[in-house]
């Protein structure tokens, strides 16, 4: 195993060094940003202080960038760590050399994978921990839900399991295509597919709840805010204000019905007047409640680890089947 550690280091030292440096830089920035957000949130906790709590301010938007970077890193792991492991050896025809030493091809594959998994695991643990912390500080300051978007993906150790899964996917793509560039294209395609699919799939991990939010006041400002803002801090809001509205009889009306057909979205009409005219007393909201977040993280981590195992099985199958002679 010591030999395989040396070989893995020698062959992958540049990606490893660059990744370690990147990890360090990201870690420092995340710690600093999180601490800034923390003190900002503490400052705003004083009821006498007036805070905008806007996510477009510079510190929260930095936090947002950092969390986005962390959730994007796994695809880089796949491209720079996973793909070259086999694809580069196929391209440079060095597998007969690697596999004709005393270390057999199975031990070779799993030994090298184990070294990379350990490194990705270490860096991933650090970054995922810091990202989770940052997400909490972001939530504390901006009030954005932890269950949504980047905050959800940065939390619950998802960056760690996603990194491991995509390391394995990169290895498998290299094993299956035997070409670095083709494997990178495959990985890119799969990554985009994953992003699109997961945005849809995440909402359906369990049946969403629907709640009725009455417009509490009658003044237009409060009404407008109620229409555009959810007041449930850590829920996953699924409709973005498009689920619909309900009238005084409790009958639901779709957003399309209310805004387009009844013309409430028309600039010339006052929206609150329009809603009142049609007896709308509140809005409907479809959501995943905050207490499901842990389960959702668990499900997504499970998917990631499943993909990790599946990809390694694919890689092993490709390696086992590889002929090392052409005669």
């Amino acid at each position: 195993m010591r030999g395989l550690i040396w070989v893995t280091w020698r062959q992958h030292r540049w990606p490893i060094v660059v990744s370690a440096a990147l990890t360090a830089v990201l870690a420092v920035f995340m710690v600093l940003t999180a601490s800034k957000l923390g003190s900002m949130a503490a400052h705003c906790a004083d009821p006498n202080v007036r805070c905008t709590r806007s996510k477009t301010e510079s510190v929260p938007s930095h936090a947002s960038y950092l969390m986005n970077s962390v959730t994007f890193l796994p695809v880089l792991v796949a491209v720079f760590w996973g793909v070259p492991l086999l694809a580069r050896e196929f391209e440079q025809r060095t597998l007969p050399l690697a596999w004709s030493q005393d270390v057999g091809r199975q031990k070779w594959l799993f030994g090298k994978t184990a070294v990379l998994v350990t490194l990705v695991g270490a860096m991933g643990t650090l970054l995922a921990g810091l990202a989770q912390h940052l997400a909490h500080q972001y939530h504390a300051y901006t009030g954005e839900s932890l269950f949504e978007g980047t905050q959800f993906q940065a939390g619950g150790w998802l960056p760690l399991t996603l990194g491991l899964a995509w390391l394995a996917i990169g290895i498998a793509a290299g094993a299956a295509t035997r070409r670095v560039l083709v494997a990178i294209a495959v990985v890119g395609g799969l990554w985009i597919t994953r992003m699109v699919l997961m945005v849809q799939a995440r909402q359906r991990f369990s049946t969403p709840l629907t709640s009725k939010l009455p417009f509490s006041g009658v003044d237009d400002a409060a009404l407008a805010q109620a229409v555009s803002h959810s007041s449930f801090p850590n829920d996953m809001n699924l409709d973005g204000g498009s689920t619909g509205f309900y009238d005084s009889h409790g009958v639901g009306h779709s957003a399309n019905q209310v805004m387009q057909k009844w013309g409430c979205a028309d600039a010339r009409t006052e929206i609150s007047t329009c809603l009142k005219d049609h007896d709308i007393i509140g809005k409907l909201s479809k959501f995943q409640p905050a207490n499901r977040m842990g389960t959702f993280h668990l499900i997504e981590n499970g998917i990631n680890l499943g993909l990790f195992v599946l990809a390694l099985v694919v890689a092993w199958y490709c390696v086992k089947r590889t002929r090392t002679t052409v005669s």
């Binding site: 395989l4 050399l97 005393d102 270390v103």
Partner: peptide, 29 residues
């Protein structure tokens, strides 16, 4: 012990000659 030197004499292109010997040392009992 069997060692095969295949037709296209594969080597790791980025390895120095010393590295190749280290490779042999680390990959063999």
């Amino acid at each position: 012990r069997v060692v095969l030197l295949s037709q296209d004499k594969p080597l790791y292109r980025s390895f120095s000659v010393t590295d190749m010997l280290n490779f042999g040392r680390h990959m063999n009992t």
